[in-house]
């Protein structure tokens, strides 16, 4: 029975096939996966905020795109992933409630998605799948035996990116 590893909010897990890494109920948060298809090493990170330098509580590095992604990169490299083969997928970044005068914090989903893309670009890791935005929650998982990243929603069914 392949292992199902739960990734909490502001949390990251890395592993190898045949594990599946899963994170439930993402709203404005982003689920970022890294995967090396040859060694079948990968990770899933659930960030809440774009930028640790804008926060007064930045001890938990997995909470932010700018610190969480490089940390997860180091962890998958330690497990034997090759940096040149790594590919990324991202999903989440919704705006759950529509307000007429959405403040910055309400649009944090959009900012999270942009930050994830910028950080990955800075690290030279290509994004080969993306499902961000909208106004609905997502449960995301990556199957480390084949790199399939699944996005489950309530109204829009399930898809693979």
């Amino acid at each position: 029975m392949p292992e199902l590893v739960k990734v909490g909010m502001a949390d990251a897990k890395v592993g190898t096939a045949p594990s599946t890494l899963i994170s439930y109920g993402l709203g404005s948060c982003i689920g970022i996966s890294l995967y090396d298809p040859q060694t079948k090493v990968g990770g899933l990170l659930h960030i809440m905020l774009p930028d640790s330098t804008q926060s007064r509580a930045n001890e938990n590095r997995a909470k932010f795109a700018d610190t969480g992604i490089p940390d997860m990169l180091n962890e998958v490299l330690k497990l034997g992933a090759s940096r040149s083969r790594l590919v990324a997928k991202i999903a989440g970044g919704a705006q759950m409630f529509a307000f007429a005068n959405a403040t910055d914090i309400m649009r944090v989903g959009q900012r999270n998605a942009q930050a994830a893309k910028d950080v990955l670009a800075g690290l030279g890791i290509p994004i080969i799948g993306e499902d961000t935005g909208g106004s609905y929650g997502r449960t995301v998982s990556i199957d480390l035996s084949n790199g399939v990243y699944k996005v489950k929603t309530i109204d829009k069914g399930e898809k693979e990116i």
Binding site: M9, L26, C29, M48, S55, M96, G137
Partner: peptide, 18 residues
């Protein structure tokens, strides 16, 4: 929607401070 997704609206705001 999913409880986690809905609660994240509140939790993200708190996440900036603690």
């Amino acid at each position: 929607d999913m409880a986690g997704a809905i609660l994240s609206v509140v939790l993200i705001q708190l996440g900036q401070m603690g």
